[in-house]
Each structure stands twice: as structure tokens, then as C-alpha cells.
């Protein structure tokens, strides 16, 4: 019998891409991962290690070659509102305003109009966008657009919130603000979050548990529990020590002269 607290479960997951030019590319091999209700899990690893591939499988956009991927004990059949994705490029509908972008998911769920508006305004309030509800999304800043995208996902009341490098396009200031906001939203809603990044800083600031992946590896590379109390100070020695630990975990198998995270 499965633990009822487990929301996302991957067991012996493989994903192999077969392309004409590159042949077989075993991107994910024997991935085992359990994510419990309310957890904030960060997936970290260098570019090409398969983070997006894994997230896409959990979102239902892609299928594993073999192995099992399940949400709340049920095998994932395809995309749906129970596993909401926040895309790196926001992917808002430009012909709708901010509120309508949040409402459209509720509309697809069959929520009545007045109820929809009320719920949309509630989540827009959560992400601090009550004022901008009626503005066309293309006139919002990148950070605001990403908040709309988060609000849209939250409005679905998903079992898990999937975020694939959502703040990659933002500048350092906006990103820092969004990090704090996201932690606040996570605490306010109790959402289960899987967050993909390749930034050590982002991982240590956000995660309760950081899962490390390396390219071509069999299984996950390691796991780090971040038990540092919040709010976390990125300039504290504690924070730096955790970053180092994570860095060492990710680079343990590499020759000493390769610096994976050199900018």
C-alpha cells in the first residue's frame, strides 16, 4: 500500500530519446523519486542532464520509455490541471488580460463566471497583482507576467506545482524578489512544488530538499536536505556552506579541473 502522503512518485523511470543523427540518448536512467504533500523540492543539475525531461514526464507532456510515473498513486496519462506547470517563457495568452488568463483554466474546469472572477482575483492578490488584473499581459513586466503565470497555476489548485526555471529570464533584482514571493506563496497555500534550476543559490534559498542530477548518470546523483530556517540569508556563512556541499555533490564524479558552475 502506498503512502497517502506521496504526491509524485517515479519508480525505475527511464527516458531514451532516439534521433537519426545522435542515435540513442539515454537521458533518464532508473530515476526513483518520491515527493510528499506540501514539500518544496528543487531539481538541480547542469544543462542537458534531463531536468526538463523529468518535469515534462511529471506534467504529462512526455511519457517515460519504461518505469512508472504517478501522481497521488495514479499513473500519469497526460497533461491536466492537477499538475500545473509554470513555464520559463510564461506562455500567457496575449489576447487576454491578466485576470482572464487566470480565469481561463477555471473556465475549462467548468467554474461559473462570477465564482471564476472571485477565485482569480484571490490568487492574483496572493501574487501581489490585484492592481494589474485588467491590464493586457503584454504590457506587464517580465516579473509581473511570471506572477500571472504562477497565479494561473495556483488557481487550478493543482496537486503539484511544476516550475521549470521560471525566473531564468528575470534580472537579479526581480529574481530575488520572486524568490521571497514564492516562499511566501508556498507557505500561504501549502502547495507541493517541484522547482527546476541550475543555480546553486536558487536551490539553497528555495528548497526544503534539493535533488541533484548529473548527465548520463544512472539514478539521481544525490539529495540534500536544507534545514536552514527561513527567511534564509544568502550572505550568511551557513548558506555558503550549504551551497558548497551541493556543489561538491554535483561535481564529485568530475575531474578536479572542471568547474561546472563557472559563469
Amino acid at each position: 500500500m502506498q503512502n497517502p502522503d506521496v504526491i509524485v512518485s517515479c519508480e525505475g523511470l527511464d527516458r531514451t530519446f532516439v534521433t537519426k543523427d545522435a542515435g540513442e540518448n539515454k537521458v533518464l536512467q532508473d530515476i526513483n523519486l518520491q515527493i510528499r504533500k506540501g514539500e518544496f523540492v528543487v531539481l538541480i543539475g547542469p544543462s542537458g542532464c534531463g531536468k526538463s525531461t523529468l518535469l515534462n514526464i511529471i506534467a504529462g507532456f512526455d511519457q517515460p520509455t519504461s518505469g512508472l510515473a504517478a501522481i497521488a498513486g495514479e499513473q500519469i496519462e497526460g497533461p491536466g490541471p492537477d499538475k500545473a506547470m509554470v513555464f520559463q517563457d510564461y506562455a500567457l495568452l496575449p489576447w487576454l488580460n491578466a485576470r482572464e488568463n487566470v480565469e481561463i483554466g477555471l473556465r475549462m474546469k467548468g467554474v461559473a463566471s462570477a465564482e471564476r472572477t472571485q477565485q482569480a482575483m484571490h490568487v492574483l492578490g496572493l501574487v501581489g497583482l490585484s492592481e494589474a488584473a485588467e491590464r493586457p499581459v503584454y504590457r506587464l513586466s517580465g516579473g509581473m507576467q511570471q506572477r500571472v503565470s504562477i497565479a494561473r497555476a495556483l488557481a487550478l489548485k493543482p496537486k503539484v506545482l511544476l516550475m521549470d526555471e521560471p525566473f531564468g529570464a528575470l534580472d537579479a533584482f526581480q529574481r530575488a524578489i520572486m524568490h521571497k514571493e514564492l516562499v511566501r506563496i508556498w507557505r500561504a497555500t501549502g502547495a507541493t512544488i517541484v522547482f527546476v534550476t541550475h543555480s546553486l543559490e536558487e536551490a539553497v534559498f528555495l528548497g526544503e530538499r534539493v535533488v541533484a542530477m548529473t548527465p548520463k548518470a544512472v539514478g539521481l546523483t544525490g539529495e540534500l536536505i536544507i534545514d536552514m530556517p527561513r527567511p534564509r540569508d544568502p550572505l550568511s556563512p551557513e548558506f555558503a556552506a550549504l551551497k558548497r556541499k551541493l556543489y561538491e555533490m554535483l561535481t564529485a564524479h568530475l575531474p578536479a579541473d572542471v568547474d561546472l558552475f563557472a559563469d
Binding site: 506534467a59 497533461p79 506547470m85 513555464f87 487550478l156
Partner: peptide
């Protein structure tokens, strides 16, 4: 956008 549509159900 089509991915979004499918995700929204």
C-alpha cells in the same frame, strides 16, 4: 500555448 491549453484541461 497549446501545451498550456492541454495543461489547463
Amino acid at each position: 500555448l497549446i501545451k498550456v491549453g492541454r495543461m489547463l484541461g
